[in-house]
């Protein structure tokens, strides 16, 4: 950033601390994912007041990333909600990792009720982050449902993060991350499950022209 603006000379140390308005608008429009490399991949984090998607096969770290986003939002003092199809939440691990469970609105539901429940949460307003967990759900949702959810998220300023097995939202998502190449690691003998490594790739959007999309490697440790 230039230290000269219309003849004004600024101290270099002060200049180093200044943030351009464009950069400020960009970071304000993003919320931290709770995982540093992922924030870098997303350009600062998940887009605020928009739909985002994270998808991948089993054991690629989707749920860990969702929990990290919830923890980051709760740590920032925001109201959060988790629409959990199937009631799969690992409360013990979440509490052990420092997530304040009492600050989380947890909704257990069937896949057919998930979108409606998410609509209700977002429409209430005041929630900073709402997560829709469809990882194990077989759900056929019309495009209109995602359009409606996207409008509601924008109107209420709520970040909606959808976790799925395969990509569903397409261009309705402002950001999408694909997880693949899950590599479990065991140490021993006797073997003990140590953790999981995965590759996170920013999914191609409508305006992406690069031949190779950016990706980062993520590592998750075992819960024990």
């Amino acid at each position: 950033m230039s230290s000269r603006a219309q003849g004004l000379v600024l101290d270099p140390e002060l200049t180093a601390r200044l943030v351009s308005s464009e950069r400020l608008a960009e970071t304000r429009g993003r919320r931290s994912s709770g995982i540093g490399p992922l924030d870098g991949l997303l350009g600062g984090g998940w887009p605020r007041a928009a739909l985002s998607e994270i998808f991948g096969r089993r054991s690629t770290g989707r749920t860990a990333i969702v929990r990290a986003a919830l923890a980051a939002a709760i740590a920032a003092g925001e109201a959060t909600a988790l629409v959990d199809t199937g009631g799969t939440l690992d409360a013990r691990a979440a509490a052990a990792s420092g997530l304040a469970l009492s600050a989380l609105l947890w909704i257990r539901c069937a896949p057919a009720q998930a979108l409606k429940a998410t609509d209700l949460v977002v429409a209430a307003g005041g929630f900073g982050l709402a997560v829709l967990d469809l990882c194990d759900a077989q759900l056929r949702a019309p495009d209109a449902a995602w359009v409606r959810l996207r409008h509601a998220a924008r109107a209420q300023g709520t970040t909606v993060l959808v976790a799925t097995g395969t990509r569903r939202l397409g261009s309705f998502a402002a950001a999408a991350v694909e997880l693949d190449g899950g590599r479990p690691s065991f140490f021993g003998p006797p073997p003990l499950f140590a953790g999981l490594g995965t590759r996170a790739t920013r999914a191609r959007g409508a305006h992406d022209r690069e031949s190779q999309l950016p990706c980062v490697s993520l590592a998750f440790t075992s819960r024990s």
């Binding site: 709770g34 995982i35 770290g61 749920t63 860990a64 990333i65 929990r67 990290a68 923890a71 980051a72 709760i74 740590a75 003092g77 799969t88 690992d90 691990a93 979440a94 052990a96 990792s97 420092g98 997530l99 304040a100 600050a103 990882c135 194990d136 953790g195 999981l196 993520l218 590592a219 998750f220 440790t221 075992s222 819960r223």
Partner: peptide, 14 residues
């Protein structure tokens, strides 16, 4: 509301 962000990302059991 205020809780520290976990230092490392741990796996969850679904």
């Amino acid at each position: 509301w205020s809780a520290p962000i976990p230092s490392e990302t741990r796996l969850c059991l679904r």
